[in-house]
Design a protein around this nucleic acid. Structure first.
Lengths: 207, 207, 207, 207
DNA sequence: GATGAATGAGTCTTCATTCAT
DNA sequence: CATGAATGAAGACTCATTCAT
């Protein structure tokens, strides 16, 4: 006779392949519902019913609705970062690297349009903002490094690198929101527009 | 035979001065709570308790929590726009006008820091996004006009004015979020940073 | 300096002519709303707004919503009874008197169609049923008297007078409900139909 | 891309046996409370407390208090109709069939005394009246058919069959209300009284 | 007398979470 | 592992009634 064993908590469970797939499906489906409906207005019941499974399944894979959302966030950020690094590694001109980052970001956002709104929401609620920020800080640090290098190399105007970095992020994210999400324009064009603006501003006249 | 008369709904009631004051207090207090806690996590009960009034008061002045939020949004946008127009009217160089707009925006956001998060949230939920956009479209149209003029006057690089406009907004809002809201820097400095970036990009080298 | 005097309670107030009119208007209007909407779904706010007066007016004339309803009921019953007695007094054949009662009832119900539903509702709620019954018992007693006389006089089949009385009431009220209220037929016709049925049943074959 | 799936609303859920039992218990208990207290004065909280279950249970089985009431109404009418048809099938004399219907109705009402008041109430509120009427129209149509046959066969006086039908219903329901519900008399006697009255009226003298 | 404003207990309903089977 | 059922705190909102002006 086996002695009773504490069930492993949802977040520290060793999963079979099938389990991993289920978990993934849940995350994808939930992310989409959250994006369409909002986090709060989307109930756990809605999610599990939409997937045609019982509530038990949900709580087998996630210990709470909040944890699920955090997971979605974390994974999205990790994935975005991976993409950025792939694009960036390729050159050693810092400005080119920054441009690569913008292109990578735009590409990824185009493929995960629905997550844009999720980031927006996450930033607006105290519960999620910190972990969102932690993720973003990593990307920011990356870009800041490129900018600093660029300044040293005389390729970039000598200003506060953090400001420049955030300006670049602001342009990229906002153009993504408007032109990818709302107007469905092709990511390459939007990326080029962002790059041009960041490079030259509105006055710029270099060929 | 008398026909039944529609009860004046909460949003169409004639208010005494005292009534107007109460309404304003409610909006201000609620806006702050929403900003701190998030819209959904903040309950009506919390709001009225925080103000030390009964629950009925809330529904005397607003027909629903949602309506209150929309009202807050609408007023904020109206107010922001008013400020932008004051600053902008002063010059007839389009670039100067744009710079004025950035300064005005930054100033206003500095005074209403807490509303930044509300805008973020509103954009993330289908229920609020449309009315948010309607308001923003007005400001966008303003800036687009300046940009077009600037292009005609040869003061601004010849690119899609809508793209340029949104790039400017992206820079302004994002820098506001990071440097005003998170780091409490003085709005004038942030405004100048935004202006410089928008003018010259990262390469720009004009004295 | 006058010494403070207890305000007379709403139900024991001496009213000026204007006051009486107001009170009457309120009762009429409320009766109609109750009839259309139901007692519970009709709020005091709705009533006073429909009449274009403040809430204070309502509570000046009635001490509660319930009291208002009881008043409406009481008055209706009194009025109906008055009408019945007028019609009935005229003959000394008991059967003719009963017929007169049916005609009177039908006439009155035709003029106060909306109250039919109110009686229905009142009967269905413990709070109102007793006073409704008290009123009805008076009418029942009247009819029972005629029936007994009729039996004694050999004009009416010898059965339990109470049963006969309630059967007559059942026919009258139900036909009123269906043919007056729902189908708007002329009260005289409906009255004759009720009378014929009550006189002869379904088999009856007298000329 | 998966499309969101409608959650099975409470009224369209597949239930286990246990579930069906609970649902039935809720309906029975609620019907009794509604009958005693009135629909509006009986709160959902009261119902679930009375049954010793959590509030969620209620909304697991019914999507709203209103739906529950409609359900009670519908079931009662269906059940009553079934009983009427059983009694009626047995003869081919139309008058006998009508008598059978009256007996069946009286029997059923005796067993479900408390529902009499619910029917009353339902008829008095716009929200419920239509579905009540739909049910009643079916029974009315049944009786009308018998009456028409009876007229053709010379067994029933030649009058508007609809009037006769409603007169019969009026007698039956009203006597039920008074003698079953208020005075607890045996249904057979009340049925016979109703039948006699409907057959002969008050004058009738046939053996 | 009358009004707009205020009260707060009470209503229906939702939903994250847990449990029995 | 999975499901249907259950929980109950909490939420938005209503409304009879009262009060300050």
């Amino acid at each position: 006779m086996e002695s009773p064993v504490d069930a492993p908590s949802a977040d520290a469970r060793r999963l079979t392949q099938r389990g991993k797939d289920r978990r993934r499906q849940l995350m994808d489906y939930a992310a989409r519902r959250f994006a369409e409906n909002g986090y709060h207005p989307t109930s756990v019941a809605e999610i599990v019913q939409g997937m045609g499974v019982g509530k038990g399944v949900f709580y087998w894979y996630f210990s709470s609705k909040e944890e699920l959302f955090q997971e979605i966030l974390r994974e999205a950020q990790t994935d975005l970062r991976r993409r950025q690094q792939q694009h960036v590694r390729e050159s050693d001109d810092p400005v080119t690297r920054i441009e690569g980052g913008i292109r990578a970001t735009m590409e990824w956002l185009a493929e995960h349009r629905h997550l844009i709104g999720l980031f927006q929401f996450a930033a607006s609620e105290d519960r999620f903002a910190p972990s969102l920020r932690r993720g973003q800080d990593v990307s920011v640090a990356d870009v800041v490094r490129h900018v600093k290098e660029g300044i040293v190399a005389g390729r970039i105007r000598d200003t506060d690198p953090l400001v420049v970095t955030h300006a670049i992020l602001g342009v990229t994210n906002h153009l993504a929101r408007v032109f990818l999400f709302e107007r469905n324009e092709p990511p390459e064009l939007v990326a080029e527009a962002a790059i041009t603006f960041c490079r030259d501003g509105i006055l710029g006249s270099r060929t």
